[in-house]
């Protein structure tokens, strides 16, 4: 298990692993939005929670097809499926590795992005907290989408079409936490819903992912 995690992290960090692409995308988005919307701090402050969450979601999406595609191409996935580790665990570890290389860095640089978008001061804590709670769900749901499309040639676009609708509840609750935080309102309800969603997804979706992965490998 730990061997698989360290291998995936190592692969992501070495040349061609694609680590940092999601972060760069997130940064570009935070630059493009003011260029498109205008530099008014008041306007940007209003849309900042939504933009930051949509940005995090899209940045997560970018690296999803790498979760299984590379292992599928070089045959490791077949070998992993015949190895003495349950496929459900493999899937969970892969999602964890994806989160550590994509979700967690997004959480860590999100305050900088908030600065660029004039996020109100009270909202920073909630931004970090909501991303910390929500991005694991993005990774786990994305892993399910990646498992669904693993055998398909040019499955990337289809992957987005399948995964983005599944991201809607996470996005709604996550952005709501930040928006309420920015207004000084109570964030308890959306935060609890977000946490519940993430826990449910982390607990149940790996079974679905492993199931479709087995179907795709046969």
């Amino acid at each position: 298990m730990i061997a698989l995690l360290t291998r995936d992290l190592r692969l992501a960090l070495r040349a061609g692993g694609g680590f940092g692409l999601g972060l760069a995308f997130f940064l570009i988005l935070a630059v493009l939005v003011p260029l498109g919307v205008g530099p008014e701090p008041a306007t940007l402050a209003v849309i900042a929670p939504g933009i930051l969450w949509v940005g995090a979601l899209l940045a997560c999406l970018l690296s999803l097809d790498r979760i299984f595609a590379l292992d599928y191409e070089d045959g490791s996935l077949d070998l992993l499926a015949t190895a003495p580790v349950p496929l459900e665990a493999v899937v969970s570890i892969k999602a964890l590795a994806h989160w550590l290389t994509t979700g967690l860095p997004l959480v860590l640089i999100s305050p900088v992005m908030g600065l660029l978008l004039f996020l109100p001061g009270e909202a920073y804590l909630w931004l970090i907290l909501s991303l910390l709670l929500g991005t694991p769900a993005l990774s786990v749901i994305g892993t399910f989408g990646a498992a669904l499309t693993v055998g398909l040639k040019r499955g990337g676009l289809l992957l987005s079409l399948l995964v983005l609708p599944l991201y809607i509840p996470t996005l709604v609750f996550g952005a709501e936490v930040v928006a309420r935080g920015a207004q000084g309102l109570s964030t308890a309800t959306p935060l609890a819903l977000l946490a519940g969603l993430t826990l449910g997804a982390v607990a149940l979706l790996p079974f679905a992912s492993a199931l479709v992965l087995r179907i795709n490998l046969r």
Binding site: P165, L166, V172, F173, T189, L193
Partner: peptide
């Protein structure tokens, strides 16, 4: 097989989205 699993998982998330939409609009 794959679409059946997607339909199952999608149904759960469709219901969640429905409640999220209600929550979202009553929210801010």
């Amino acid at each position: 097989d794959l679409t059946a699993v997607l339909c199952l998982v999608g149904s759960v998330f469709a219901v969640l989205s429905r409640y999220a939409a209600i929550f979202w609009n009553q929210g801010l």
